Simulated scan of single mutants.
Amino acid sequence: MTASRPHALFSFGTLRDERVQTALFGRPVPSSPASLAGYTTRPLPITDQAVIAASGLDVHLTLERKIGAVVEGAVLRLTDQELAAADAYEVDDYARRRVLLSSGESAWAYLDAKPLRSAARIVIVGDSIAYGRCDPRGGWAARLAAAHIAGNEAEHRVFNLAIPGSTLTDVSEQTPALLAPRLPDTVLVAAGINDSALPLPASQAPRDGLAQVADSLGSLAATALSHNARLVVAGPLWVDEERTGDYEGLRFTRARALALRECMQSWCDANHVDYLDMWEPLRGNPDLFVDGLHPTSEGHQALYRHLEALSR
C-alpha cells in the first residue's frame, strides 16, 4: 500500500463492482481477495435512488455477527478522496468501522449503523451504574441481557463485567484479560462518570480524570479490535448535583459530566467508534435517581428502553 492509497476497505458487496467503482472513483481501484471471519450477511433493502442507480440493485447486503461464519470479499486500496466518496455512497443504515481481516490486517468495513442490532455476544465493562447498583433487577444491563438472549438463546450472550467504582483507566487496564474466554463480538463500555469526580475539599489538587479519557478509549479500541470486536461507548447520565453532595469524599457536578460527555463523543466521532448518548433519558428527572448519581429501578428501565430504541 503506497502513501497515496493509505486506506484499506473491506468490501463484500457492490463496491467490488468495477461499474460502481468507475461511477464513484472515476476508474477501478486496486484490490485483492480477502475474508472476514466471525460474520455472515443479510439483505438490506435500499431506497436511495442514487445508490440504486449506481449499483443497479435495490437490495444490498449488510454484515451480521456469527461465530464460525466467514464472509468472502475484497480489500480495496483507496485514497482519502476515494474513501470519502465511498462514505457518501453508503446509505445511513451503514457505519464505517474497523475490523480485523482473516489475514490479520486491520481494515475499514461498512457495518450495521446500529451496533447492538447486529451483535451476538456482548461484553459490558463499566462502573456501578452498569453493574446495576441500587436496582434489585440488575439495572439496564440485566434488562438488555434478558432481551438480547431471548432473541436467540442458542447464539446470543451478554456478560456484565462491570465493577463499582471503576474509572475508564481501570476498565482499560482490566479488560484485556477478560475477553478471550467470552468470545465477544461487541464490547460495550459504560464508564467515565468516576473520571469526572473532583475530590473534596475543592482546594485539594485533583488528578483530572478527564485528561485520561482519550488514552483510555484508545486502549479499549485496540483491545476490542484485537478480538475483532466492535467497541461501543455509552456516555454519562445526567447528574442531579443538588443531591450528590459529598459522595465518599468526591463531588460530582453536572458541568463535569457534560464535559465528559463532550470529550467521549468527540473522541468517538473522530475515531469512527459507536457512541450511545445516555444523557437524555433521565435529564431533569431527579425522581429517577436514588442519590443523584445512581438510577432507581424505574430509572434503569428508562435507560433500557432508550437502548432498545437505539437498537431497532
Rank of each mutant, 00 (worst) to 15 (best):
91 V>W: 06
310 L>F: 13
311 S>V: 12
197 A>E: 00
256 R>A: 14
81 Q>V: 02
6 P>T: 04
212 Q>H: 12
89 Y>I: 01
298 E>T: 08
56 G>I: 05
146 A>S: 09
113 A>G: 13
185 D>W: 10
145 A>H: 12
6 P>Q: 02
108 W>T: 00
225 L>K: 09
154 A>L: 08
150 A>L: 07
120 A>S: 01
284 G>C: 06
273 V>A: 07
48 D>N: 14
33 P>N: 07
222 A>N: 15
102 S>M: 05
280 E>N: 03
243 R>F: 13
4 S>P: 06
118 S>N: 09
11 S>K: 11
28 P>V: 09
5 R>E: 00
243 R>I: 10
155 E>G: 10
267 W>H: 00
134 C>S: 15
192 G>F: 14
177 A>Y: 06
25 F>C: 12
156 H>G: 01
113 A>Q: 10
148 H>V: 01
30 P>W: 12
94 Y>L: 08
56 G>H: 12
181 P>N: 05
250 L>A: 11
179 L>K: 07
114 K>E: 02
174 Q>D: 13
269 D>S: 07
70 V>C: 15
269 D>K: 06
242 E>T: 10
310 L>Q: 14
58 D>I: 05
221 A>Q: 10
167 T>P: 04
233 V>S: 09
114 K>F: 03
44 L>Q: 13
172 S>T: 09
96 R>C: 09
15 L>E: 05
77 R>S: 00
257 A>T: 15
201 P>C: 07
11 S>T: 14
268 C>E: 03
222 A>V: 08
68 G>K: 11
240 D>G: 04
167 T>V: 10
94 Y>K: 06
25 F>G: 08
92 D>W: 15
2 T>Y: 10
273 V>R: 12
96 R>F: 10
151 G>M: 04
305 R>Y: 01
127 D>I: 01
163 I>C: 07
167 T>K: 12
110 Y>Q: 01
31 S>M: 05
258 L>E: 11
140 W>K: 07
297 S>T: 11
169 T>K: 14
251 R>W: 05
41 T>I: 09
106 S>H: 07
193 I>G: 03
141 A>R: 06
212 Q>Y: 03
279 W>Q: 03
72 E>T: 15
135 D>A: 11
57 L>H: 15
125 V>E: 00
138 G>Q: 09
272 H>V: 05
173 E>R: 15
10 F>M: 01
284 G>Y: 03
289 F>K: 10
161 L>H: 08
152 N>K: 02
23 A>G: 07
189 V>K: 12
238 W>P: 00
119 A>W: 00
192 G>I: 12
198 L>C: 00
78 L>M: 02
107 A>L: 00
238 W>R: 01
25 F>Q: 12
238 W>T: 00
148 H>W: 10
251 R>A: 08
98 R>D: 06
301 Q>H: 05
